[in-house]
Design a protein around this nucleic acid. Structure first.
Length: 391
DNA sequence: TCTGGGGTCCTAGGACCC
DNA sequence: TCTGGGGTCCTAGGACCC
């Protein structure tokens, strides 16, 4: 027996809650935060949810369902700042706070009992502090492992807390439909239903080999474990941004694009964004991946691995353009393009001796100057000439 | 005016090496 | 001449999460 005590804390309708904090006149009304043209709902108030508005739903659909909803444009900087403040409060409770995203975290409370007392009380105090100091409601699940804690926090929403002790884990999980299980999306749910499995309890009683045939060795084994309330994963205190495995940028055009030159230009913008973030994190990447989505929503990726990792805008742009041109698209209607860098390494571990006398060095110096200017004067203070044109 | 942008992890086949 | 297996890297695609 592990005897672990894990809390999962999830801020309720986080982006909307941050907006309500500075616009209290919107309280009690249907509100959602969403993108403009081809955007989706990022966060919806519970009043909007009552009208069928869901996150990830196209904004146009949401407006149709709820025409009187107040639509707010996202302000990521405000959300990131609010997130930092909440994490600072969580950090006072335990050293082991694993950020799962901007608005949720796992806390290991196993070792805090002797210092702070009963975990239920610790969590109740934590929720009260986040509400009083930051004006943000949250929900918490308290359980023997991260998976059950996550499932409990969802069940506790909104503005609630649910404790699931070891002895009650299967009573809690097994009646729930498989669709509600973390790790089961649309595709897996369809496969499970096809097998006649409707609840997490059904899943728990299925032979692992059956699921492994249907879902693959890893996922099959994992789902049976989770369905039985077993999740031995250890938490780490790392923030997501401290162990990134890839960095990238993508953009959906306001209208589908036919002209390859327009795509090339957008790729330069994306290469710029990606490489600036690499340099800022002092990382270099070795694999460049180009991704495309077409008007019919089909998608593809093409990648190439370089002999030496890079953080240079023009190197990344050149490779992405080459991957794109190699496709030989004719009259393709491009909806979205993206660039992602993988195989990341600390740039300090990569020898810079080798390129001291190469043509890249000039670019490296120019790039560093642009980064400095953009840090001082804002992200678009200095741009390449070809980006100042509009398409 | 249907369907964002940021990610992680897994699978599978082929190349290549031992 | 025939017959192996394992490990790693690269590439492409797909599922999932927030």
């Amino acid at each position: 027996m592990s005897g672990r005590v894990i809390a999962h804390l999830d801020l309720d309708a986080f982006y909307v809650s941050v907006e309500l904090r500075r616009r209290p006149e919107l309280r009690g009304r249907p509100v959602f935060v969403g993108g403009q043209h081809r955007g989706v709902v990022l966060s919806a108030s519970y009043e909007a949810r009552a009208r069928g508005v869901r996150s990830a739903m196209p904004s146009v659909t949401a407006r149709r369902l709820c025409p009187e909803a107040i639509v707010v444009q996202p302000d990521m900087e405000a959300y990131v700042e609010a997130s930092r403040a909440v994490f600072a409060i969580m950090d006072t409770v335990t050293d082991v706070v694993e950020g799962a995203s901007v608005d949720e975290a796992y806390l290991d409370l196993t070792a805090t009992r002797s210092r702070l007392g009963r975990p239920e009380q610790v969590v109740a105090d934590l929720r009260a502090r986040i509400l009083s100091e930051q004006g943000l409601p949250c929900s918490v699940g308290l359980a023997p492992n991260p998976f059950v804690a996550k499932m409990a926090s969802v069940a506790a929403k909104p503005d609630g807390m649910l404790v699931v002790p070891q002895g009650r884990v299967t009573d809690f999980l097994w009646p729930l439909p498989v669709e509600q299980m973390w790790g089961v999306g649309e595709s897996t749910a369809a496969t499970l239903n096809w097998l006649g499995l409707r609840t997490i309890g059904d899943l728990a009683r299925t032979a692992p080999a059956t699921l492994q045939r249907a879902l693959g060795p890893r996922q099959g084994e994992k789902l049976v474990d989770l369905a039985n309330g077993r999740d031995p994963r250890r938490l780490t205190d790392r923030r997501p941004e401290e162990h990134e495995r890839s960095i990238g940028a993508q953009e959906t055009f306001p209208a589908d694009v036919y002209d390859p030159e327009v795509v090339h230009r957008e790729l330069l913008r994306l290469a710029e964004r990606t490489s600036a973030r690499l340099r800022r994190a002092r990382l270099v990447g070795r694999t460049v991946t180009l991704s495309l989505r077409f008007a019919n929503f089909s998608a593809l990726t093409r990648s190439m691995t370089l002999t030496e990792p890079t953080d240079l805008t023009d190197e990344i742009h050149r490779r992405a353009v080459s991957l794109y041109d190699r496709l030989g698209l004719q009259r393709a209607r491009v909806r979205q393009v993206g660039i992602r860098m993988e195989g990341l390494r600390d740039s300090a571990t990569v020898s810079t001796q080798a390129d001291l006398f190469t043509p890249d060095q000039g670019w490296r110096e120019a790039t560093a100057a642009i980064d400095r200017a953009n840090l001082r004067f804002g992200p678009h203070a200095v741009q390449r000439a070809s980006l100042t044109r509009t398409w």
